[in-house]
Structures are given as C-alpha cells and as structure tokens.
Design a protein around this nucleic acid. Sequence first.
RNA 1: GCCGCGUUGGUCAAGGGGUUAAGACGCCUCCCUUUCACGGAGGAGUCACGGGUUCGAUUCCCGUACGUGGUACCA
Length: 505
Amino acid sequence: MKVRVRFAPSPTGGLHLGGIRTVLYNYLFAKKHGGDFILRIEDTDQSRYVEGAEEYITKCLDWCGLQPDEGVAQGGDYGPYRQSERKDLYKKYAEQLVAEEKAYYAFDTPEEIDAMRERLKAEGKDSLQYDHHVRMQMKNSLSISEEETEKLKTNGTPYVVRILIPEGEELTFTDLIRGEISFETNNVDDKVLLKADGMPTYHLAVVVDDYLMKITHAFRGEEWLPSAPVHILLWKYLFGLDAMPQWAHLPLILKPDGNGKLSKRDGDRLGFPVYALDWTDATGHTTKGFKETGFLPEAFLNLLSVLGWNDGTEQEIYSLEELINAFSLDHVHKGGAKFDYEKAKWFNHEWIKKSAAEKLFPLVKDVMLANGIEVEDNEKTMHVLELVKERCTLLTDFYEQSAFFYVAPETIDIESIKGKWTEAKTDFFTTWTKTISTEENWEIAIIENSFKQLATEKNIKPGELQLPLRVMLVGGKFGPGVFDIAATISKEETISRIQKTLSLL
RNA sequence: GCCGCGUUGGUCAAGGGGUUAAGACGCCUCCCUUUCACGGAGGAGUCACGGGUUCGAUUCCCGUACGUGGUACCA
C-alpha cells in the first residue's frame, strides 16, 4: 500500500515553528517511503478565517521546499481539499451516525450549556463535560421524544450533532512514537461533530477526510492526544478500525523561558522569529519570519528537524535529501523541547559557511539593496562573499560585513588608533601611499610585501601599522585580512581612504 | 479539579541493568590571527525525588513532585 500522509493547517493564523515541523516530519516520512504528501486546508470556521492565509501557507511551504504532491494548490484525485467545499460530505456521515444511534441531535443553547456547567461546578463535580452524567438532563434527541425532535428540527431550531460516547469502554491505540496509549470512555465527553452552521468540527472532518483521501499515516502535535478517543470511536463507527491511519503525536515546541507551548507572541517578546515568513495577522500586526530575519531555508529546515529528533549519530547538519534518508519516527523524542534561538542561529551560520558564493549572491544582493548598495554579479562580489561569509550568522549580517568593499565607511573609529598614534606613523602612511601609487600589480602578496618592507625600513613593527590600516579601510576593528581588503577595493580606493583618515588625525 | 503525555548539564540531546554517562549550542581558558570571525586544544556543568526488583539501577516497576497538553458549536 502506498504511503499517504497529510497535513491540514487551519488558515486562521500563520504557520509557526510547530506547524512547519509537523509538515516537515510528514513530508520526510512520505518521501522516505516513496509516498505522497497531501495538503488539505481546514477552513472549517469562516469567522476565524484570515484573508490570504491559504496563499501564505503555500508560500511558506514553497520557501522551505516542501511542496505537497497533492492538495489545494496542486489538485489530485481526492479533492476538493478545502473543507468548506466538502460540507455536504460531512453532514452525510453525521446523519448516518445519528441514524445508527452513535450520535444524536442536541438543541441546547450556549446559555443552557453554561448553566449546566455552573450547576455542576456548584455541586462540586470534577467534570464539567457534556457527557453521560448529564446528557439525559439536556435538550437532545436522546432525552426528548422523536416527535419533539422532528418538530424542533423542522421549525428551524439550531442544533448540533454530538457523538454518543459509550460508557465503560477502554479505547486503545498504538502511537508510532509513544507506544500503546489507552483511554476510558467514561472520561470522554460527547464532542460536537457537526456545528449549528452545518460545518464539521475537526474531529469529524479529520476522520472523514483521512478515510476518503486514503491517508495511511497522520502526524500531528501532542495537543491532539486527548481527542484521540473520539477519533478512534469515529473510525470504529464509520469505517472500521482496520482502515484507521497510523498516528504519531509529535512533542511540543516550548517557550525558551519555561511555561508553555511556543506561541506567536513569544517571538516578539523574546526577539526571534516564530514564523517561516513574515506574517501579518487580522489586526495588521506583522510578526517577523525566519526568511526576513536572514535565515536560509536549508538552515531553517535543518534546525527544525533536529528539534525533537535525531538519527542516533552525531550528525547535526543535514540537507533535505539527507533528512529524508535519515529520518525515522522511532528516534523522535517524546518530551517537548524548548526552542533555543542561539542554536538556531548556529545552524544558519553553518549553512552560510557551507553555501557557495553563487548561491548566496541573489540573497545577499537583496540585503545590500535594502541598505542602498547595489552589488553586481561579478568576480569581485564572489570574492567578497567568500571572504566574509564565515563571519555572517544571518544573511542580514552581510551588509555590515561587506558594505565597506563597495562604499567608503562613513565613520572612522579614530579613537581606537589615536592613542598610539605618532608622527612616524603619519610619515609611514604618507610614504606608503606614494610607493603604492606607482605599483602596477595590485595583488595581495605585493601589497603586503611593500607594506612590511617599508615598515622595516622605517623601523616600525608591521603589526602596529596593520590595525590603523584596517580602521582606515573599513572604519573599525573588523573584517577579513587587511591586505585582502586593500587588494579587493582597488589601489585608488585604498589610497583615498588612507588619505582621508590621515587628514582626520 | 479531572484526564492524557512527559522528565539525562542553562538549552538540544545519545545511551538504556555494570559506561570515565557521547556529541552539539551557549559559557570560560589557551593557541592561531597584532581586528573580528573561522579553525584548533582544553575547562566548568547532568541522569527530579522516594520506594521496590536486582549482586548491581540513570536504565525495569510503583508512587510522589514538577512540567506540559486537553477539558469549546478552536484547531
């Protein structure tokens, strides 16, 4: 049987770390087993639907390189893939369950349900659920007569369909990561399957869709574990337990500073991205994405993959290809992992170091452009990129680390050389600029030689002159080898920058 | 409260009855480099607690604590 895994984001918010990691694991598993990765959209609640969210999700997956084989954007044989377009399907199954007495109509208003909870709380009950303890006291097709039910339905009273959870049963399934897990049905409440507006809840939709779309494996966040018994029951009633996909409940990604699952707000609060791409929510507030922060998609995927998974070896850097090979569910950790931004940056740094200049160029070009510097796709730029990439953690660092190759520094950190400045040094630089102005071969070795030779002649240690030269050329105490910089920015530019600083001293 | 899941250094984690308990990030020291970074060599730091089982438990079992998730006509 062909492996088919699905991911079903809800277009009610951006795709954050946990969501994309779920996509990743689904994708890796599917690809590893030569199967299909299916993208279904869960727009079950129009009131929470955020305009453009669907396109946003597609863009995120595109940036990451995790294109689905089948689904909303690419079609397939099991469509439609948008839940709002499958409404009638769910209703049919809900009706079937009612007819088979596995579910029932409930006419309670929200107020009546609240009142029920208040009452239970007042009575000191542990459970405030709509379940076997209270269902016969509520207004539903179980507690009232058939005629009355019909009457309420025909006169347009809003109703929902609730699953009828049996008493005293034990429900068990084997989670691919956690092993056998069981639940007592007595602790499970009669979950709503079909809402008053005719839309399904996640519980109904996920079971119906997984069946109709022939899903074989489904991985989702650990927060879904408590609703597993409802889904098991639905499988049992509707399609048979044998058809049920294999489940794996992924550990949560937690806030770096303790308390709780990582949320969209944590990024703003702690200063790191939680979305793949910039995400603008319904209020117009934009939360920064990994892409815009300066991450390489390879690094992003890499850091996400090892957050809760490892292959048992010491390898840490993986390409997508390597991940597909190495991935296996039995090495997924059971416990939640705190997100560590420092380590995330380390992954990006590693990927930048290992990326060729040609590959980095288009990305760096945008960064430079955003800062008003135009760089061309030429030999000089490739050299600059190679020179500078090992000191860039984020793509955005390329600006600071390489701007001086293109434009003279605006400010010179005079203070750092002023203290030890002497007349002899002024003399040295004045003489040197003259010497090099006639130099025909502007190459590193030649520049360095002439610099050191003159230093020896003037009886000054070359080292004492290198730092000033650096500051003159780049504006501060940073950057690659000075002579390499001089060679790259051209002779004229070197002389001009030296003279400019000399005039400031 | 009730139910589920979890717990190896600050963080990510390997291991799974006998180990000097890997490795990575971060931190510290030194080397390289008279910048920064890269690279190299070191260092500090850990099996939540209590009971079993066992010749021996970080590892298996049971409790406790703590964390986390669910407890919605949200997903």
